[in-house]
Each structure stands twice: as structure tokens, then as C-alpha cells.
Design a protein around this nucleic acid. Structure first.
Lengths: 134, 134
DNA sequence: CATAAATGATATCTCGTTATAGCATATTTG
DNA sequence: CAAATATGCTATAACGAGATATCATTTATG
């Protein structure tokens, strides 16, 4: 009943980075501050690089830094790159075809609900989040 | 971003049974009418029996039949017995602790949303659903 | 009674997600 | 230059949900 752990990790990483925008952060530093297993954190960082949210700097004083403005990275972009957003368009009860003839009480509720969620995901940027954090 | 397949199967099975309340239905019959792999269907039926929603009748003309009134079986009961409802009380983004200080736009939205979903699950019985189906 | 058809119970397989490990390469620092 | 500390890349393990397979037991029916 939520997004994947990888999506959650990605959001954690990027929101932490958004709050330390000035710095270039290494996987070690991120590991010390976030509750993410180091080897997996490395993988997730690699994926976030490939997805173009951040870029890596190699070598001894290397690390990761945003390659796009945090004002222009929306939560929906991050979820899309990890889990995809398709599942939001599916029946929350997991039906391919509604056994209730599209008339169950959940149908319209979830339809409007998921639109609200999607709206927030699409309108909330990392900058919005980091501003609020102070 | 939905409930488990097992929960979905369970809802499918029980809602089908609710629409054929008079009959005692075998796993074979259910398999012919629902898109659920036979061996797994058997397992799910066994679990639904153990959970007390239905009871089994053994022997050649055996099958399954409700052991509680369909008016008194709520969707929330079924979800609770499969996935549990705990995940509905968690952050939809998968955070243990909100990295946004409980102030992200998703927080209040999801809080009211999940309450709505929970309300529907708790107030909708199998009878409500089968009535709608006609 | 023998067979057919059902459930009970349980062991195993598959597969994707999550997690781990190790080596190669790059770069700073002494 | 050599050591330390980064990331790049990739192979492998662990784990759980979903799916499969088998055999034992029960009961209706001819």
C-alpha cells in the first residue's frame, strides 16, 4: 500500500541533498545520515545518476551533486523513474476488471483520490520540500 | 500502489460467492469463472476458510459456502485477513519518519484520503456489492 | 466396494525486489 | 609515486509473494 522501497530511498536521498544543496555529497556521508544500506545506496545513487537527477564526481573527493535544479525536479519525476506511475491508474483493490461492474464504492473514491495524489506529486518539487524543512 | 494479489483474489472469490449465495461452490467451479490459477486458488480458499469467512465441505460433492452472513462481511475484514490494514496508516511514500517534518503536501492529503478509503472498506459489505451487481 | 471428485496439507519452484561483495577506475593528498 | 578515498560496474545472495505439484483424506455415486 505504498511505493517501493527503492522509490522511498530515492526520495530520501534527493530530499536530503536538496537540504544540502551547496555540498557535493558522497555515498558515505549519505549513508551516515540516511538509514539506507551502503551497497544498495550505491546502486540507487547510480540509478539516480543514470536518470539524470544527479551527476557523479569521481575520485578521492568525489560524490554526487544535482545535475538539474531542485526547483525543477518533481516528486512525480522521481517516482516515475523508479516505480513508474502506472500503478496509480489501477484499481486500488488490484482488479484488472472491476468485479463490481465499476460501481463499487471504492471506484469513484479512488479515482478522485489518485488524481489528488498525482497532482501533489506533479506539483511538489524538491525545492518546495527543502524550503519547508527549515 | 495497491493491495496484494492475494487480497484481490480473495475479494474476487468472495464477491463471486456473494452473487451465488445459494450455491456451494467448488474450487473447480470458481476456477472456471475467475481468472485465478487453480493451485493458488486452492490455497487462498484454504486461508479464507481458516479466517472464518467460508467453510469447506469435503468429499465428492464438496465445496465452499459462507460461514458468516454476507451482510456481515466487510471489505475491511477481508483486507485485514490478507494484507492487514496497517499499511494504510503508513506514509504513502514509504518513509518511516517523514523526511519533510510531516509538512509535505502529501502528508495531510494522504491522511484524509486513507481515512476515506478505510471508511468505505469498513462500511461496504459483500451484500452491498452483490446487490449492486444485478 | 471401487471409482470419481472434492478438500487438507505441505513441499517446492519461480521471479522480482532488496541487499551484498568485489574489483576496476579515477582523483586528491602526502 | 603511493596510499587513501571516491565512483563505475557487475555478479551473486537473500527473501517474500505468487504459483505449482503431490499425496492423503473424505464423501457421493454407480
Amino acid at each position: 500500500m505504498n511505493f517501493s522501497k527503492t522509490a522511498s530511498y530515492s526520495l530520501n536521498i534527493l530530499s536530503y541533498m536538496a537540504n544540502h544543496e551547496e555540498d557535493q555529497l558522497s555515498a558515505s556521508i549519505l549513508h551516515e545520515n540516511l538509514d539506507i544500506p551502503y551497497p544498495y545506496l550505491r546502486q540507487v545513487l547510480s540509478n539516480l545518476s543514470k536518470s539524470g537527477f544527479i551527476r557523479s564526481v569521481r575520485g578521492r573527493s568525489g560524490g554526487f551533486i544535482f545535475s538539474r535544479k531542485k526547483e525543477e525536479i518533481y516528486l512525480a519525476d522521481i517516482i516515475e523513474s523508479t516505480d513508474g506511475l502506472a500503478s496509480l491508474n489501477q484499481c486500488i483493490l488490484g482488479f484488472k476488471e472491476c468485479p463490481f461492474n465499476n460501481q463499487c464504492s471504492m471506484h469513484s473514491l479512488w479515482e478522485s483520490t489518485r488524481n489528488s495524489i498525482l497532482k501533489v506529486l506533479k506539483e511538489t518539487s524538491l525545492a518546495d520540500i527543502s524550503r519547508r524543512r527549515d
